[in-house]
Amino acid sequence: MDELLREAATLHRAAFDREVPEEVARRYAAAHRALSRITDAERAWMKRALDEDLDLEALEAAARRDRPDHVLCRKFKALLYVAEASPEYYADFVSDEPRRFQAFLSLMGHGVRTLFKRLKGRALLRRLETP
């Protein structure tokens, strides 16, 4: 359980750039009841990624493109489902106001950022695959 709470904190920082609320972390850990396919090897992979304090956003961006069923992709999805149910994340998911200019600027920025993250992620994935 402690390992899953540590995961929740790290994944949350990577996705939302802030500390994870206790309830979201608890639900993230509990959500692993629905993630029954995670293997020991995948647990070990996650532990190593956390221990080495790697860039999880970059790893996920690379993994999702090449291996969409990667354990990190599944865990990020679980975290976002859990977070989305909470009102404090409403503005992270939904825009209530017209923001055309901000939208294009933000999306262009994220496009560039994603390219960078994907390159970095590929390098990190290769490193993690090295015993």
């Binding site: 976002l80 989305e84 992270d92 998911f93 994220h110 950022r113």
Partner: peptide, 26 residues
């Protein structure tokens, strides 16, 4: 729909996907 059902289909990093959830899904 839940945004989480859709947002990982965008070819962006997770933070980019959240931006797409706000600005592209509508």
């Amino acid at each position: 729909l839940l945004r989480s059902d859709l947002l990982f289909n965008f070819p962006l990093s997770v933070r980019g996907c959240l931006a797409a959830s706000r600005y592209v899904l509508p």
